[in-house]
């Protein structure tokens, strides 16, 4: 990958990676750090990365760094999630998009990442497997479970309304 191709990757994929990470971390500063770190690694390894695979390379690096980051702040993250859950149950979401975001936040990191990689970027099961380090069958099972959980949450909210 040349310098020009790298900068094209920045132009094309920086926002995508940032959205993906921000949706998972819900912290702008942390998401920015992860994205910058991912692009830094891409720059350092640009000689070994083919341009066609640069997007999945970026998502792979960003995903693993995000998991590492979540492991570091797991305790704080769980406390925040607990408060958020209480707030959601107290005030039902009226808007479907907000309800879906709330439902996404209730998924674990792996499930949420799978849903976002599928819905935001349209990756196939096998591509998601390459990014997350799972095999295709695992991706399929985890993703379907996540969908059913999301559906049950949304149906439950609708019933509450």
């Amino acid at each position: 990958m040349t310098e020009k191709e790298y900068n094209e990757c920045v132009e094309l994929y920086a926002d995508n990676v940032y959205r993906f990470i921000l949706k998972n971390l819900r912290q702008e500063e942390d998401a920015r750090d992860v994205v910058q770190s991912a692009f830094e690694k891409l720059w350092k390894n640009r000689q070994n990365v083919e341009t066609e695979k640069s997007k999945s390379y970026l998502f792979t690096i960003a995903y693993h760094q995000m998991i590492d980051h979540l492991r570091k702040v797991k305790r704080i993250h769980l406390q925040e999630e607990f408060r958020e859950e209480a707030r959601v149950s107290a005030t039902p979401a009226h808007h479907l998009k907000k309800a879906l975001e709330e439902a996404l936040s209730r998924l674990n990191e792996t499930q949420r990442s799978l849903v976002l990689l599928k819905d935001y970027e349209g990756y196939s099961y096998s591509e998601i497997g390459q990014i997350t380090g799972l095999n295709e069958s695992q991706v399929k099972v985890y993703l379907h479970r996540a969908r059913i959980q999301l559906k049950n949450y949304l149906v439950k909210l609708e019933n509450l309304i």
Binding site: A14, Y18, L22, E28, R32, V35, L96, L104, D119
Partner: peptide, 13 residues
């Protein structure tokens, strides 16, 4: 309904 849509207004700052 569970399919999420990316918020294109969010971009890397």
């Amino acid at each position: 309904m569970t399919v999420s849509e990316a918020d294109l207004s969010v971009s890397f700052p």
